[in-house]
Amino acid sequence: MRTIYLLSIAAILGTGCSTQKFVSFQSPPSETFTTNKLKVFLKDNPNPKVVLRVPNTKSSTTEEDANTYIYNTIEKELLKHNFIVRDRALFNEIIRKSGDKVDYSELKKNTDTDIILELTNLETDVVYRTNEYYTSKGQKHLFDRGDISAKGVKVDFKVVLIQDNEFAGNYNFNYTPCLNGCQVEEGKRGPKYYSQDNGKKQPYQTISHREMEDFFKDATNKLIVQLRN
């Protein structure tokens, strides 16, 4: 009985002292480009009138899509930095009524808008993958079998000076999961994210609304910095 008791204590101690394992993913660099003409324009017009255009624009001003909260987040950040934000639905309605040939000088006059900020691409299922983990002491190792993945986000913006319908800038930003490390453990089928409820949950596989909002706040602020530098 004493032997069994000592073995149990040893097993508990061994479990408690097991090496913690973490993964992190490398974030791709952001790519930004601003034309000299846009820089001069923004220097002369520090509070420009801007409209946000988004992918798959709905034909009706009353229709919404699942990413509306993202678009609202972008517009709120623009407003905080003293951009004058035009109503995107009404802007799109004016374009729709213009038909195939849009007169941008007329569009500027009819909408009183200087800049189109177009969200040209939004990917919410970018896969990050690694077969490497590190310990709390910073030691790097490879998993015994398999690898582990998590989802991130990529967004691309384009800026158009509406007066001349002229391309003026291009910007992309990335949300990379586990930048500060996510704890993992190795199971029979390979690595998985650590969970205290016997692995029933798999965190980091989906991105919450709050994480998306935080990412787009950050991305919009980085975009504004690039525009005003």
Score class of each variant (00 low, 15 high):
Gln139Pro: 05
Arg210Ile: 08
Phe22Gln: 00
Asp156Gly: 00
Cys182Trp: 15
Leu179Phe: 11
Glu75Gly: 06
Glu118Gln: 11
Asp87Asn: 15
Tyr194Ser: 03
Leu161Thr: 02
Thr135Ala: 06
Gly199Ser: 00
Tyr133Trp: 13
Tyr134Asp: 02
Ile74Glu: 14
Glu213Leu: 01
Asn67Glu: 05
Leu179Pro: 02
Ile4Tyr: 15
Glu64Ala: 01
Ala219Leu: 08
Glu166Phe: 11
Asn221Ala: 11
Leu142Tyr: 15
Ile70Cys: 07
Leu117Val: 03
Arg210Gln: 09
Val23Gln: 09
Gly187Gln: 11
Phe216Leu: 04
Glu123Ile: 05
Arg86Phe: 12
Val153Gly: 02
Tyr194Lys: 03
Ala66Trp: 15
Thr34His: 10
Lys140Phe: 14
Val54Asp: 08
Ala89Gln: 12
Lys108Trp: 13
Gly181Asp: 04
Ile74Tyr: 11
His81Gly: 03
Cys182Phe: 14
Phe173Ser: 07
Ser27Ala: 07
Leu52Asp: 12
Glu185Cys: 00
Thr176Arg: 00
Met212Phe: 10
Arg53Ala: 03
Arg86Cys: 08
Pro29Ile: 01
Pro28Trp: 07
Val85Cys: 10
Gln202Arg: 12
Asp218Ile: 06
Phe173Ala: 05
Asn47Met: 07
Asn56Thr: 06
Lys140Ser: 06
Leu52His: 09
Asn174Tyr: 15
Lys21Glu: 04
Glu106Ser: 14
Thr61Met: 14
Ile162His: 02
Val51Trp: 12
Ser27Leu: 01
Val51Ala: 04
Asp100Arg: 08
Asn45Gln: 05
Ile94Tyr: 14
Ala219Tyr: 11
Asp164His: 10
Leu90Ser: 06
Ser105Glu: 12
Thr124Val: 04
Glu132His: 10
Met212Lys: 06
Val23Pro: 04
Lys137Ile: 01
Lys101Asn: 07
Gly99Ser: 02
Tyr175Pro: 00
Cys178Tyr: 13
Lys21Asn: 08
Val225Lys: 12
Tyr193Val: 05
Lys109Trp: 09
Thr3Ile: 02
Glu63Thr: 04
Ser105Lys: 15
Thr68Tyr: 15
Asn92Ile: 01
Lys21His: 14
